[in-house]
Simulated assay, not measured.
Amino acid sequence: MNPRYPLWLTALAMLAFAANSVLCRLALRNDAIDPASFTGLRLLSGALMLVLIVTLRDRSMAAVWRAGSVLSASALFVYAAGFSFAYVVLDTGTGALLLFAMVQATMIGVGLVRGERLAGWQWAGLLLALAGLLLLLLPGASAPDLPSALLMLLAGMGWGIYSLRGKKASDATAETAGNFLRSLLWLLPLALVAWPLPAPQSMGLVYAILSGALASGAGYAVWYLALPSLASSTAATVQLSVPVLAALAGVLWLGEPLTGRLLLASLAILGGIALVIRGAGVSRTE
């Protein structure tokens, strides 16, 4: 394989992941669509795209029907719903940073509970990341809305659990397609809780479908194509780019402020996580 092929796939996947935050914020900040409808359309269009990809690849739906689980689909739904409702208020970069920090915290925390041990530099990185998160959430003029921040942290926990459950999947794309399909079972309870649902605007529908079909469905498929060619530490570290890309897009395209608090918190959180991830890679090679 051309060595540049995984590099381009990885870059494309990271752009897709950051685009999810941008598309969601675009749709919700101007009330083009409500968060429940955005969640439903995102999951539905993502499921259809992933099923299409797997069916074209295998010329059969059998792999999709066999893959996935109700528990993983529930974690996926918690992520998608929390993500949407949080972005009604949160800025793009702040939301992406909270999400990413909680995903990594969940995965690291589960590893510690299972008996994994951290080296000295990893503990330093973990404490640095926690300090950055506290700095971001402390009350003040530039602090994010606390209920929305907690919803995004819940979304990150859901995605972290989903990621942990999918680590051993033999066919990650089919597994994701199956889980997206099963997550649709949660849309009826969500609609009942959020009822009455306002009629979405045409651009709200477009943003939701783009988020589901391209940024989620196609984005995950591209990421799983790149993953086999990446070392674990590289795959984890490269995801540090997602909150940065989302924040830059929010500033350039949506006119969102880049505050000193967000910059400091980003450096602490992303730098701390990088120390933990890099430390894990070094300890495995010793």
Rank of each mutant, 00 (worst) to 15 (best):
L134S: 15
L134G: 15
L134K: 03
L135T: 11
L135N: 11
L135Y: 04
L135D: 06
L135A: 14
L137D: 03
L138Y: 08
P139L: 09
P139S: 11
G140P: 01
G140L: 07
G140S: 08
A141G: 13
A141L: 13
A141I: 06
A141N: 12
A141E: 13
A141R: 14
S142P: 00
S142N: 13
A143G: 07
A143H: 04
A143D: 00
P144V: 01
P144M: 03
P144H: 02
P144N: 02
D145H: 15
D145S: 13
L146P: 05
L146C: 10
L146W: 11
P147I: 00
P147A: 08
S148I: 06
S148D: 08
A149P: 03
A149Y: 04
A149T: 02
L150F: 11
L151G: 04
L151E: 06
L151R: 12
L151W: 14
L151P: 10
M152G: 08
M152T: 03
M152R: 11
L153V: 12
L153T: 01
L153G: 06
L153N: 04
L153F: 07
L153K: 07
L153E: 01
L154I: 14
A155C: 05
A155S: 13
A155N: 04
M157L: 15
M157V: 13
M157K: 01
G158M: 06
G158P: 08
G158I: 00
W159H: 13
W159N: 12
G160W: 02
G160L: 04
I161Y: 12
I161F: 13
I161H: 11
I161T: 13
I161L: 14
Y162R: 07
S163L: 07
S163N: 12
L164K: 09
L164R: 11
L164D: 09
R165Q: 15
R165L: 15
R165W: 13
G166V: 00
G166I: 00
K167P: 14
